[in-house]
């Protein structure tokens, strides 16, 4: 294999990988962004993601319809989100700790109910071939894109617009920046946060369904490698902006695709280091973007992690 062809293969594999790996990130980070905009943090999205993945796979297997699986995964995620939202309104309950607890709870539920679905093969989500016409095999494989990727992009654009230009967006941002101001507007802070956390959970569940129904495309207990938790860091990196969440997700996807891409041309040395690349990148980004002097710029004022 010549030098150029190998490089091209890596490049295509990385582009394809970036698109595939980033899709769950897009959904989870947008969900987390939505939740955090309301002034609350949900660290439990990792559990939501894995539970969503399991539910989607099971429903797809039982019903034969992967899209029904995606929907049910979202509903399961919304349910876990609603539990978080409801519990956090009680006095003296810490939203960070509850998030960790619900993460293990979601994982427990997923592993408990997911046991029978590790073996069977469920129908997977279809993909849209965007580059079959080029006749280049590796490019064609790279650009088989799942529709959920485009849904994610549309969602990011929509959320970005809605935060700025709608009444609901204004209420959400006010609640996140100052609960007192929101109360003065006559808004029920608890209800806004409950709805935002529920919606965030729905998106994380959909992100999970992508994992089990498209890429890697099967259900196993080691399916997620912490995407749900990295999404929390990703939202901080993106400074609570849906469009930047989208770009950050793609970047994470590319970082996560380096390892498998290099493996495809036979470089296996240091595979685990490339696997860890997204974590290292996140950490450095957090170090670079955090500040000891008060909250981060553009952070919701009520958010616990930035205070």
């Amino acid at each position: 294999m010549s030098e150029n062809a190998a490089l091209l293969t890596v490049l295509f594999a990385m582009i394809g990988g970036a698109i595939r790996v980033s899709t769950p990130f897009i959904f989870v980070s947008l969900g987390e962004c939505l939740t955090e905009k309301s002034g609350r943090i949900n660290l439990g999205l990792e559990g939501t993601l894995v539970f969503g993945a399991m539910a989607a796979y099971a429903i797809s297997f039982l019903s034969g319809s992967p899209w029904l699986g995606v929907f049910v995964a979202g509903c399961c995620g919304a349910l876990l989100g609603a539990v978080h939202g409801w519990v956090c309104k009680l006095p003296r309950v810490n939203d960070v700790a509850i998030g960790i607890a619900l993460m293990t709870f979601g994982l427990g539920l997923a592993f408990f109910f997911g046991k029978p679905y590790i073996q069977p093969a469920a129908p997977r989500l279809p993909s849209i071939p965007l580059a079959d016409w080029t006749g280049n095999a590796s490019l064609a494989t790279a650009l088989k894109v799942n529709p959920l990727f485009f849904v994610g992009i549309a969602l990011a654009v929509f959320l970005s617009w809605a935060f700025r230009n709608t009444r609901t967006g204004l209420i959400l941002r006010t609640t996140g920046d100052s609960a007192a101001a929101a109360r003065a507007m006559g808004v029920s802070v608890d209800r806004v946060r409950l709805l935002a956390t529920t919606a965030g959970g729905f998106l994380a569940g959909v992100g999970g369904s992508f994992l089990s129904l498209y890429y890697p495309g099967s259900w196993s207990e080691g399916l997620s490698s912490g995407q749900g938790l990295m999404a929390v860091a990703l939202v901080i990196f993106a400074r609570w902006d849906p469009m930047r969440c989208l770009f950050a997700s793609m970047m994470f996807g590319a970082a996560g695709a380096i390892g498998p891409a290099l493996q495809s041309i036979g470089i296996t040395q240091g595979y685990y280091f490339f696997n860890a690349a997204p974590y290292v990148v996140t950490l450095f980004i957090m170090i670079a973007s955090s500040s000891t002097k008060g909250a981060l710029a553009s952070a919701p004022g009520e958010l616990a992690v930035t205070r």
Partner: peptide
């Protein structure tokens, strides 16, 4: 000022 919960997990 990096959030210690997320940093320790990473």
């Amino acid at each position: 000022g990096v959030n210690e919960t997320i940093a320790s997990l990473l």
